[in-house]
Amino acid sequence: MNPIDFSFGDDGFDLRDAVTAVLVLLAALMCFAAGVGLVRFPDVLSRLHAATKPQILGLIAIVADVAVTNLSVGTVTLAVAIIFFQGLTAPAAAHMTGRAAFRTDHFREDILVVDELTSRPDADRRS
């Protein structure tokens, strides 16, 4: 029995369940937002934003939840490693994809209010 027991469900819904519920719902919402962003955003560069950022928060929430509910050295180190690598590789992948998209003109210029890369002084678009 936990000392703090909310128990407003018939299946023993305690504080740990509440934390899990909130974090899982947050992650699910982030996944949903990423999917919607992929469908709605107009060009590759905008979709990259939707693809990179919400997932990081979703994954941090989920992994933190797993690590906290099963607190041990092995779990926490693995959780730290997962977040570290996802946080390190996702921006790198986004950068590679974004650069490829820009160099192959896979973006809409009509929705850019400022563009300082096309008009930079030594504008050699290395291919």
Binding site: A34, D115, E116, L117
Partner: peptide, 17 residues
């Protein structure tokens, strides 16, 4: 980003700087 993706009236407007 989640809010931008989900909000009803989204008008795309980006910048490269």
């Amino acid at each position: 980003i989640a809010w931008i993706a989900l909000k009803p009236h989204y008008r795309p407007s980006n910048a490269i700087f």
